[in-house]
Structures are given as structure tokens and as C-alpha cells.
Design a protein around this nucleic acid. Structure first.
Lengths: 196, 196
DNA sequence: AAGGATGGAAACCGATCTGTTTCCAGACTC
DNA sequence: GAGTCTGGAAACAGATCGGTTTCCATCCTT
């Protein structure tokens, strides 16, 4: 454990990993032990375990997003930038510690849509949809909103498949995204004028 | 509670509902109370809670499948029979007690792919894929296996969207399936051009 | 009417749950 | 050096966890 980091940072890091790997039903004792933080400190920093669930999810959100979405202005076409997300998902599914999209996983586990963690999950799923939307607008497709939703569902469906089968996706998610992009006419790099 | 049913049936019924609604972490005390069965009887009928999870999932599987997939020989085209699954999912997502596909939900919660419940979940997801496959073969598409996988992912992605957003799908899953079927050239075989 | 099997109610076990509290070691300021 | 603050270790609380056991009422069979 990193003793340089503050107790709060250590707690958020450990929570982000353990809630994802073991589920949100992991005990506070195990969590604090992994973080090297006392329960007293934890309950001084967070009102409840539920709040820690939400805040840890919010803290891993930007990093997860950055790991999936290519940087702006990298010279890629919208199609390539969209497909890059599915390539990253494919790579993640090959690793042994893949338990699906952490937001979807948490939402499924919490059941209650009003739980603060569910609210955070909803927020970050919307941001992925918004990323797709921006690319689709740049690609000038007919129905960018509808396509962005479909790509998000393709992402979560592929993620769910990897979880249920406990296997790597081996490109099936990428091919699904390609099929949807083909159908929407998001094709040749040069033809789709992506001015910025 | 139905006193006609055997303790085993009452347990499987209650487990199928409560594990889905509250998650697999619900206690066996609450479960037995809901089923009107003593813990003693429960542990005589099932070796462990984990076994009850698996068996209750296996017991709801056929019913869930039958609720989604149209009967054979109903005069519908393969395309209509495939879309009927997504229409049913859309209808389910409108109800307040929708927590996603029970197999996907259980697999996400259990995390461990070797858990007997995960094995059952995998089995029934494969049966949905097999249903799609049969229809796609009948429709003579180019890559029926790949398309069946894509439709299954579309199903689970749509289901995940309804869970994360805690909202009805309002047709977005149906439209995604239509887009995939259109791209694969699955029209009504006997009836030419069918507009939507 | 007697005997055996079924199965519910509830006590019990040790472990773990979320959350609170006490105590004390170390680092800081003044 | 005295006082203050942070934060870890650990006991504690009451509830619940999965699982076992005892006891007893109700059946069915004969």
C-alpha cells in the first residue's frame, strides 16, 4: 500500500478495486484492511459504506473513461475512434480479472436505481454515449443519437457476454460495432469530412 | 403461499423471485420465510445455498425462455420471430420489477464463473443464441453463428441499458435488432420488401 | 389405535455484517 | 515541553450470515 497517499486516496483505490473484483457486498473490515486504514478513519471520511461505493465509483470513472476513449486530435477518423473503444474492451476481456463494465456491474448488484452508486453508474454510462455521439455527429450520420445508444448497448452486451462466458471476446464486439457503423454509413476515412 | 405445492417447489419459486429481485446475497432465513419452509427442510432438499441458487435459476430458465421465444410453427418469418424476442424484452423493461436478464444478473453478481449458478446462466444464454441461430439458418444469412452472437449481445446490451437507466427501453433494443437484421439481409423470405 | 415419516418453529453455533467507541502512538504547533 | 491533532488497533454493539440441531405437531399407513 502506498503510504504517501492520504487515507482517503488509499481507501478510494482499494474500494475501486475490491468492489469491482469481489462485488459491493464485500465487508468494510476487509476493505479497510486492504487500504491500511482504520474503520474509524473510514467513517470519518465517508458517511456510510453506500457513500464510499458511490465515491469510489466516481473516482475510478474518469480513469476508466480515459482508458477506453482515444484522445481528441490524434488524427483518427470518427470510425476509428469509435472502434478503438471496442478494441480496448476486447483487450480487457482477455485478462483474467475482467468482470465487465464496472458501472453496469455495480448497477446490477445494487438493484436500487436510487442508490448513490447507481446514480454515478448512470452518469458515466451516459458519458460513453456522449463520446459516441460526438464522433457520430462528426461523421455526419443520419441519426447520431440513436446510433450512439446502439453502440453503448453493443458495448455493454459484449461486456456481458465476456462475463457470462468467462472468455475473451475474440473480436465479436468489434465486429458488431463494425456492422452497426457500416449500416449507418460510417465508412471511408477520407469521405467522411471530420473537420474540427 | 401455495400449500398445495411441495416444499421444494415453494422454495424454488421463492428463490427464483427473491434472488432475482434482491440479489443472490439475500439470506436463507428470509428466503425460507418467504417460501413458508423451514431451514431444516431447505438443507435437506439442497446441499447448500449455492446449490439452491443454481437449481432455482435452472427452474426459472425454461419459463423465461418460453416467455421470450415464440412457438415454432406459428407462421411467422424468422425475422419476425427474432424481433419478437426484442419486443418481449421491451415489454419487460416497462414493468417496475425489471432487473435485467436473470442469467446475466446472476453471473455479474456471482463473479466466480465456476459457481454452479454461473454454469446454469451460461447454459441458458447459449440457448438464446441457439434460438437465434436456428432462425438465421432458416433465413439463410451468410454468417448465422456470428449474427446469433451479435443478436445475443444486442439483447443483453439492451437489458443492461434498462437496468442502468432504470427506464423502459422504448424501442431502442428493437431498432438495434432491426439494424443488425437489415445489415445481414434478413427480410421476410416469402414476402418481398416489407417497410417498417 | 399405534408407529413412522414429514416438515415447521426456533434455539443454537461461530463467523461476519455495518457502524461506534475507546485508547494510544506519533507528528504538529506554540 | 505542553497541548493539539491525525489516525491506526481493537473492543464493542446488535443484527444477520450460512448451516445444524432439537423438539413437536401433523399427517399417512396399517
Amino acid at each position: 500500500m502506498n503510504t504517501q497517499a492520504t487515507p482517503r486516496e488509499r481507501l478510494l483505490d482499494a474500494a475501486g478495486e475490491l468492489f469491482y473484483r469481489d462485488g459491493v457486498n464485500i465487508g468494510v473490515d476487509a476493505l479497510c484492511k486492504a487500504a491500511g486504514v482504520s474503520k474509524k478513519s473510514m467513517y470519518q471520511l465517508f458517511r456510510s459504506k453506500d457513500e464510499l461505493i458511490a465515491e469510489s465509483l466516481a473516482s475510478v470513472g474518469p480513469g476508466y473513461q480515459h482508458a477506453l476513449e482515444p484522445d481528441a486530435g490524434d488524427g483518427l477518423t470518427p470510425r476509428e475512434r469509435i472502434l478503438a473503444v471496442f478494441v480496448k474492451l476486447d483487450q480487457q476481456s482477455r485478462k483474467g480479472d475482467f468482470y465487465g463494465c464496472p458501472f453496469v456491474s455495480t448497477a446490477f448488484e445494487l438493484k436500487n436505481p436510487e442508490h448513490p452508486g447507481s446514480v454515478v453508474a448512470r452518469h458515466f454510462k451516459q458519458r460513453l454515449t456522449d463520446f459516441f455521439l460526438g464522433e457520430l455527429v462528426a461523421a455526419r450520420v443520419d441519426d447520431p443519437e440513436g446510433m450512439a445508444i446502439q453502440l453503448t448497448m453493443a458495448f455493454d452486451g459484449a461486456s456481458a457476454r465476456a462475463v457470462v462466458r468467462a472468455q475473451a471476446l475474440n473480436g465479436v464486439g468489434i465486429r458488431m460495432a463494425e456492422a452497426l457503423l457500416d449500416a449507418a454509413g460510417v465508412k471511408a476515412p477520407e469521405l467522411a469530412g471530420q473537420a474540427r
